[in-house]
Design a protein around this nucleic acid. Structure first.
Lengths: 173, 173
DNA sequence: CGTGATCTTTACGTACACGTCAGATTGCGA
DNA sequence: TCGCAATCTGACGTGTACGTAAAGATCACG
């Protein structure tokens, strides 16, 4: 009949919303099931609003969001439930962005949202810093252990046959 | 028939073996079930050899081993199965130590074991380094995000009772 | 030597994070 | 318009890492 899209649908910019769930899954090295599951548990905030039953279509931005979710899950090792609360920072940010487009928003309210987001960001930072520190410690310890092992091997090699330079057989490690 | 303990049981040194599973669990902030499970899947290498049916008794060293297991699990986020193969380095080291006590061991064999252990250590290091790098990256990104959020808040605070609105939309939060 | 706390094995239950199958539906290309 | 691959919505299955309950044994102590 008549194309009544609000004029901003297939605009010049490639804001697509043209990726199907299979494409997204491949791009993220995961499966459609996982993406649907994340949506199901509320990690994707109603990402692809669509008439139920139709295929989900994703924008590049939404893909990035999912990538971020998986990254945080991997690096922080938290449950999806915890992740959801951690990610409420992003939701706050999304709300801020949304409200920024309307100019009639109370600056007080805007500030509130920002403060909240900041709080969540700092919780994330805390977590990340803690883990980073622990990992760094572990890395140092492993380096030490490796050093000792190498020394021992060199010691054996030296004692192997006399005491002249261990000419051949430089084990490349 | 007769009490034939090999004379090295309650030696002078406090090599204890006097911690019960409940004590260990409390010390590691976990449960007896978890410790038994780790033993069941072979993560603790027959730690407390004992006449079946009797209570498990742990030495301080064994507690440290379990602590290390939990630490690696936590920091590397790997399955217990993967962890088992990663930890074979420690087993190799244990074997080396064991063979070192007997002096009649083939230096070739000893070197082999050390080389193996070294390999496992380097696999661990690889993993740890990778994760550490990723986490560090994430930390930097979060710091940036936090900076931006703070700037925005300060901007709002300035405009709150200041003269003019600050140049809007500097950086997308 | 009794007794209560702790531990033993065995076995079934559970939460999380998906995997997999079925049957219907959708959507793009020929 | 037809065909076929991809997707949809349930619903049930699966592996991991334990939790929990039961019934009896062991240990530390008085």
């Amino acid at each position: 009949m008549s194309p009544s899209e609000p004029s901003s649908r297939d605009a010049s910019a490639a804001a697509s919303r043209s990726l199907r769930i299979g494409d997204v899954a491949r791009a993220l090295a995961t499966t459609p099931r996982t993406i649907r599951y994340y949506e199901e548990v509320g990690l994707l905030g109603e990402a692809p609003a669509r008439p139920s039953g139709r295929h989900r279509l994703y924008t590049e931005a939404e893909v990035e969001r999912i990538r971020e979710v998986m990254r945080l899950k991997e690096l922080l090792g938290v449950s999806l439930e915890e992740l959801k609360t951690l990610l409420s920072a992003e939701e706050a940010r999304a709300e801020v962005r949304a409200q920024l487009r309307r100019e009639d928003v109370d600056p007080e309210r805007r500030r509130e949202l920002l403060i909240q987001a900041l709080g969540h960001i700092e919780r994330q930072l805390e977590l990340v810093r803690h883990r980073a520190a622990e990992l760094s410690k572990l890395e140092h310890e492993l380096n030490e252990t490796r050093k000792r092992a190498r020394r021992k091997i060199r010691g054996l090699d030296a004692a192997r046959e006399g005491s002249f330079p261990p000419s051949e057989e430089m084990t490349p490690l």
